[in-house]
């Protein structure tokens, strides 16, 4: 009798599947512990299979604490900010998140990755530029920086600013509409190889480094899980660094030799 019932139930459920709607909201799997991330090409992007180095590190740090997480990359800072402020998201990830002082009070900021940043110029326009680490050299020149980046130091130094997406900045550099652009070395290397391979030799990196781009998670204190998960994430990240797995993940993405070239070590 039991077997008979099982067969009947099996047939009924099969029939239901066969005649049921192909696409329903029930088929959508709600993301667990969703964190919205601002695209940072080559490091944090849906264009990379596992979401990139930063996404892999975040996922692994949570996993160390037996916590599932979902990183949702978004192309726009405005959308990332929307999820934080309007939908009370658990957290957001990125560099240059452009948060207001009021928003900063409501987050726990945890740095995840530190990347070397440089200025780049276009050789056909300038033979060289006398950059020694002081922005005064760029006075009256136009520097292209990321959207959302704090530009007050440039303004104080009398530097003109253009804020655009990276591809648009590279195009502007080649078109000689801007003089210099600032970007993470790894991101720039990838962008030139991917979309501007014919111009790689003409776009020159200035020594010394311009500084660092720090990719952080901003946990939302207003989200019921925000503070607890921030603490657990910090623990997980510390374990990841201590075990050496943190560096292994980076190496697995870009190779052992490139780690020092592109990254600044993240302290425990």
């Amino acid at each position: 009798m039991k077997t008979f019932l099982s067969i009947v139930l099996f047939c009924v459920s099969g029939a239901a599947l066969a005649t049921g709607p192909r696409v329903t909201s029930a088929l959508l799997t709600p993301p667990v512990n969703e964190i919205f991330a601002l695209d940072f090409p080559a490091v944090l992007s849906s264009e990379i299979a596992d979401g990139g180095i930063a996404a892999a590190l975040i996922t692994e740090a949570f996993k160390t604490e037996q916590i599932e997480s979902t990183i949702t990359p978004l192309p726009l800072q405005t959308m990332v900010a929307y999820y934080l402020t309007e939908e009370n998201a658990l957290g957001i990830v990125g560099h240059d998140l452009n948060l207001s002082p009021a928003e900063l009070k409501n987050i726990v900021l945890v740095p995840v990755l530190r990347l070397k940043e440089s200025y780049f110029y276009y050789r056909p326009k300038y033979e060289t530029l006398a950059w020694k680490g002081d922005l005064a050299v760029f006075k009256d020149l136009t520097v292209g920086v990321n959207k959302g980046e704090d530009v007050t130091t440039y303004q104080k130094a009398g530097v003109k600013i253009e804020q655009e997406r990276l591809d648009a900045r590279i195009k502007a550099l080649i078109a000689e509409k801007i003089d210099v652009l600032r970007e993470a070395d790894l991101t720039m290397t990838n962008a030139l190889a991917k979309n501007f391979s014919g111009q790689q030799a003409n776009i020159v990196r200035l020594e010394p480094s311009a500084g660092e781009a720090v990719i952080s998670i901003a946990f939302n204190k207003k989200n019921p899980k925000g503070i607890v998960l921030a603490k657990q994430f910090q623990q997980g990240l510390a374990k990841l660094i201590a075990s050496g797995k943190y560096t292994d993940i980076i190496k697995s993405h870009i190779g052992k030799a490139a780690v020092e070239q592109y990254f600044v070590p993240l302290k425990k």
């Binding site: 695209d39 264009e47 949702t72 192309p75 959308m79 959207k147 591809d167 991917k194 979309n195 501007f196």
Partner: peptide, 25 residues
């Protein structure tokens, strides 16, 4: 803001790059 092109001026990227950005808007 996301650099989504109608395609009447061809951007320097693959269609896949553009479509993946578009999907997240």
């Amino acid at each position: 803001q996301a650099g989504i092109s109608d395609g009447f001026c061809r951007p320097d990227e693959t269609i896949g790059d553009m479509v993946k950005r578009l999907a997240r808007l």
